[in-house]
Amino acid sequence: MKQADFVSLVMPFKDKVFRLAKRLLVSREEAEDATQEILLKLWKNNNKIGDYKNVEAFSMTMTKNFCLDRLKSKQASNLKIVHSNYTDNNTSLQHQVEAKDSVDWVSKIMEDLPEQQKIIVQLRDIEEYDYEDIAKMLDMNETAIRVNLSRARKTIREKLTNTHQYGIK
């Protein structure tokens, strides 16, 4: 496989790999490093890539494992927390500030979720994979995924409701 073929194969999902890495590692730099590492690993095995039925799912599994390893290793013990910038909301300034605040709050809530739930919410609610694909990526059955997802969604909702109603932060 030539470099151009590889790039066109990897292009569609490299952002997804990056976002999953960022969800788990929080820091943008760490996530960029992880993504680079994963793409290089794929490139190194590019003669075997044809054997994989679903390169994207395979890459997502790789990303998950890689990031969990990073989290376990000592290297990741001094992770920095970097927030990404959100683009214009197209509403009034007051609204915008408020919305940005609560949107930021969602990302903080998600940071507190257990790793497994983080991954599942990321794959389902953000990347919009169907359950079958997620099951393959995480090597879990669909019921377990649904249970975890439901738990995560309820946790997010509860925390959001709390802040919304009582302003607890």
Partner: peptide
């Protein structure tokens, strides 16, 4: 349902984030 709004906005926004770094394929 106002309190659900940030969650869904966050999900949609998160999807727009992109990986911009170049990958040196000739390692």
């Amino acid at each position: 349902f106002e309190h659900y709004k940030p969650m869904f906005i966050y999900f949609s926004k998160s999807k727009q984030e992109q990986y911009t770094k170049d990958v040196p394929l000739n390692s």
